[in-house]
Simulated assay, not measured.
Amino acid sequence: MSRILGKSEMDAGVAKLAEQIRERTDGRQFALIGIRSRGDEVAERVRKVLNEGGVEPEFGVLDISLYRDDFEHLHENPKLQGSEIGFPLEGAHLILVDDVLFTGRTIRAALDALSDYGRPEKVELAVLIDRGHRELPIQPDYVGIPLNTERHDHVYVSLESTDGEDKVEIKDAS
């Protein structure tokens, strides 16, 4: 397994996401919704950087465990942690945040889950790492770090609050 990104690169990716969001929202109200797990930590970091720059979006966390299309194939019992969305989604501008975008299936599940909370006016996608290889027609609006990988590589993201350190490692498919 090779370590390819450390704390400084990940901090730069979060800062890049925050800057892109700040520029594109241009003072308009929006909400960040982090996808459990790890997308919520990335969203919290992006929110902190935005707050430091005077931008204060609404914030929520979305648990998609029961919406996954591979639910029955998960090797472990999913840990249901619940969603925390304390504001109405009707007519809102939402930015979904996740750590890694790969096939697009997690985002599809997140969109399904959001529909149970209301009908937002607009939903955009921000990802810390875009590794390509989509199976669904889903593309990010904001990308912190584009990462070239092979289709069958495994990308492991570790985050400080969840895993004790910030790093990204790739295990080659071979």
Rank of each mutant, 00 (worst) to 15 (best):
R151D: 09
Y117G: 03
D112L: 01
D11Y: 11
N77K: 15
G91P: 13
H73F: 14
I4H: 08
E121A: 13
N77Q: 10
V42M: 05
I170Q: 06
R119P: 01
P88H: 10
K171G: 06
L159N: 06
Q29S: 12
P88I: 08
Y142H: 12
D69M: 07
V143C: 03
K48Y: 00
D99H: 08
D99C: 04
S2I: 11
V100G: 03
H93T: 12
R68Y: 14
I170M: 11
D63Q: 12
F71P: 00
V55L: 02
D166G: 06
G104A: 13
K79I: 15
F102R: 08
Y117C: 08
K79S: 05
E150C: 03
P137H: 09
M1Q: 04
V143P: 03
G144I: 01
G82R: 08
S161H: 14
G60L: 07
G54V: 05
I95V: 15
D153W: 07
D98G: 06
A31M: 05
V55F: 05
E52V: 00
F71A: 08
Y142I: 03
V49K: 03
E9L: 03
N148G: 06
A126C: 04
L96S: 10
P137L: 13
K167W: 12
H73L: 15
M10R: 04
G132I: 15
L62S: 09
I95D: 11
G91E: 13
Q20P: 06
Q29T: 10
V143S: 01
H75Y: 01
D172S: 14
D130I: 11
D166Y: 08
E121W: 09
E160N: 14
I4P: 04
